[in-house]
Design a protein around this nucleic acid. Structure first.
Lengths: 132, 132
DNA sequence: TACTTATATACCTTGACACGTATATGCCAT
DNA sequence: ATGGCATATACGTGTCAAGGTATATAAGTA
């Protein structure tokens, strides 16, 4: 359970993160709002804390948890690699501005699927430079 | 295994997605580049396909897989909820805008924890309107 | 027709993790 | 100190998913 991706794979953890967007919360508050048992909340918070998603400060007997930005930036950085790709696609779908991308066929737009070429060169003109 | 988050939690699947950014690939090509067994690749591709991350076209005996944008947009939409937050924080850390957070010491910088208020109102002035 | 390549699927085993119950720890109040 | 509240942790259990091996399916080729 190291990667940020595994951390946010858990629905309850995502719920906790969403809760904390508005403001910091104590364990009990989270417990009540999300209707989870207290140990479950504590455990998820532990995971989130160790992954850097949240931090806590002590307030008497309670702990107030709040978000930390770093892991989100990491997620964003990963997504960024695909962002160029999908924005191309959004364009291609919404409109038909293929001429704006003279060299990026965006895969989806052209003949879609029935390409059915002679196999050997079915991939031609599509890949960048990885004849492999 | 419904959510996009669970899909990308698997390292091998992320590797496949990263591979497909550059261009579409056949199962065999993925298998060789990532050094995974063929059934493993097929299985992951199945998961990715059913989750809408990829689509495939038949090319003789092979299947060519390529990315689809929708799930990435979904991820981006989720991240967006936190984006405002973390950019705020970057500012908050670099500078010292504590007056914006009269009682949220950001943990890192100021009084750390000893805030030690009367408890009952420790959270006051921080929440939006979710007294719940 | 056989043989080979490419991919998908089935079955099994294993390990991880999420949850619940119970309990420990720590802080407050009386 | 004693009891109560807030949170953390331990332990046992069930589920589920990932990987491996074997096999099925399908399309090429000789």
């Amino acid at each position: 359970m190291e990667s940020v991706f595994e951390i946010i794979a858990e629905p309850n953890r995502r719920a906790i993160l969403s809760l904390l967007v508005s403001s910091q919360q104590s364990v009990g508050e989270i417990e009540r709002q999300l209707r989870m048992t207290q140990p479950t909340v504590s455990k998820h918070l532990r995971v989130l804390r160790e992954a850097g998603f949240v931090e806590s400060t002590v307030d008497a007997q309670r702990r107030l948890y709040r978000l930390k930005p770093e892991p989100f930036e990491e997620l964003d950085a990963w997504l960024a690699r695909f962002r160029r790709f999908w924005s191309e696609h959004v364009d291609a779908l919404e409109r038909h501005l293929d001429r704006m991308h003279p060299l990026a066929p965006t895969t989806a737009t052209p003949t879609k699927k029935k390409t059915r070429r002679n196999r050997r060169d079915a991939n031609r003109g599509h890949n960048k430079g990885e004849t492999k």
